[in-house]
Amino acid sequence: MTAPLLSVRDLHVTFGLDEGSVRAVDGVSFDVLPGQVVGIVGESGCGKSVTMRSILQLVDEPGRIKQGEILYRMSGPNGQGETVVDLTKLAKRGPQMRAIRGAEIALIPQEPMAAFSPVHTVGDQIIEAIQLHHRQWRPDGSGLSRAEAREIVVELFRDVGISMPDQRVDAYSWQLSGGLRQRAMIAMALSCKPRLLIADEPTTAIDVTTQAQVLALLRELQRKYGTAIIFITHDLGVIAQMANSVVVMYLGRVAEQGPVDAIFHAPKHPYTRALLRSIPSIVGETQVALPTIAGTLPHPFNRPSGCPYHPRCDERKGPECAARVPSLQPVDQGQSVSCFLHHDSSDTQ
């Protein structure tokens, strides 16, 4: 079996607020294999973005990684040899973390406006990143001139389907349409040839026809460069089209994970099953009541005891569901589930 490029192990992230502490991420584990697309789904507030920001040590204050490991397999100098580092152990602003951000792991953040500074042109910002990580383009260590870096940006813009790239390079982010800004962000993320790209809802703000183009682009880049991608979205259609494997999150934990076909055609966790039933399909019967999930998402200060899904679960097994927290256990080929219907193992809380 291939060794994972990234392995998140039992990650806990807490926000200490005046009103109490929020366990935003409460024991998340998953792997990303080299060159694979991992899709992450789950409802608003389930901890998707916080998990991703933890990987890059970018969690906003007052968030803290409380527990767990984030093991990343670093390529050695000049691509020779590999070492596994625990990203949670690195200093947030230290040289190692800075070298990893952008060059090894790049993030397309959820807020499109946050990615670019409004006072510099989009091109300048990407040029700066390329010059900083020049080894990614010149493994021999020789530097890149501004003109050379600019050439690379124009080429990247062309790759991501930005028309008139040599003019768009000099635009400010606020002068670009939503679709163009999204593409510029992807170009920025790819500018240092990362081995892992984290795309946090990269197509939520754009239209379906533009989305189709952006998704095709990401698939092509992934094929061309073998980049591994973590793709976050709440759109199950996008997941089905993009991912090799899927992680389903609920209230800061992984409910289920497995190969994309198993998740859609043999989901095992009651939450995954309910989620799939609740989407109106483009082929199904119309104007009928859709199956829903009972109740509402608990408030983060009010986490249920035991299985976090138990107050809403329509397949609840028994009293153990409210008493113990089911752990994520492998149950089938590459498929793992946190549910007592499938095993009896629990995590200590």
Partner: peptide, 25 residues
């Protein structure tokens, strides 16, 4: 027709359609 083809279908067994609509609105 192009708009409909662009909608991602939530079933991994349905092959990804070719992008028929290029350019911007």
């Amino acid at each position: 027709s192009a708009l409909m083809r662009a909608v991602p279908v939530p079933d991994p067994r349905i092959p990804v359609g070719e992008v028929t609509l290029k350019g911007e609105v």
